[in-house]
């Protein structure tokens, strides 16, 4: 239980051990721990940032989709309007064309009618002349009474 040289030996051993620990053990270990702590903190911050930018992107996507939907609806409306316009136009054109056809038909009919009437009149005139010729026989010279007969024919 007496104090002896061990006291000094122990002190020297302790100084050596502490020096060694301070030089070679503590710095790399505490560096590793602190670097890792920093890395983890950075990673968490990055994750947070990623989360935020993800939600930002999500809202942006929502906005773009809504915009696109609006635009698409506009385009569809416009197309519908246009289609209706085209149909109306076509219908109007059709109606006009029918009218033109009908008018042309009417005109043709009128033309044919007047032509037929003229022909008929001429034939009637001819028949009348023939009849008259037969009635009058040789007493009436066709050529001498031509103007008279024409006048008669035009009065039919």
């Amino acid at each position: 239980m007496d104090f002896n040289l061990t006291l000094i030996g122990q002190s020297i051993a302790m100084i050596v051990f502490v020096w060694f620990c301070m030089k070679f053990i503590w710095p790399p270990l505490i560096d590793a721990i602190e670097t890792r702590q920093k890395e983890i903190a950075d990673g968490l911050a990055a994750a947070e940032r990623g989360q935020n930018s993800l939600s930002d992107a999500q809202s942006q996507v929502d906005r773009i989709v809504a915009e696109a939907r609006d635009r698409a609806r506009g385009i569809v409306d416009q197309a519908n309007t246009r289609a209706n316009g085209i149909v109306e136009e076509a219908r109007a054109e059709g109606v006009a064309a029918r009218q033109r056809e009908v008018d042309a038909g009417h005109a043709q009919i009128e033309l044919d009618k007047s032509r037929a009437r003229d022909e008929l009149r001429n034939q009637v005139a001819a028949i009348a002349v023939a009849g008259a010729e037969r009635v009058l026989a040789r007493e009436i010279d066709a050529s001498a009474h031509r103007d008279l007969l024409d006048q008669l024919a035009s009065e039919l």
């Binding site: 002896n4 040289l5 061990t6 030996g9 051993a13 051990f17 070679f24 053990i25």
Partner: peptide, 25 residues
């Protein structure tokens, strides 16, 4: 007297100190 060394204490203390340094090193 003072000029005496406790060999066993010194031996085990130094061995254990070296064990500590070795493990942590």
């Amino acid at each position: 007297g003072f000029m005496t060394l406790n060999v066993d204490s010194m031996f085990f203390a130094v061995v254990l100190g070296v064990v500590f340094l070795w493990l942590f090193g």
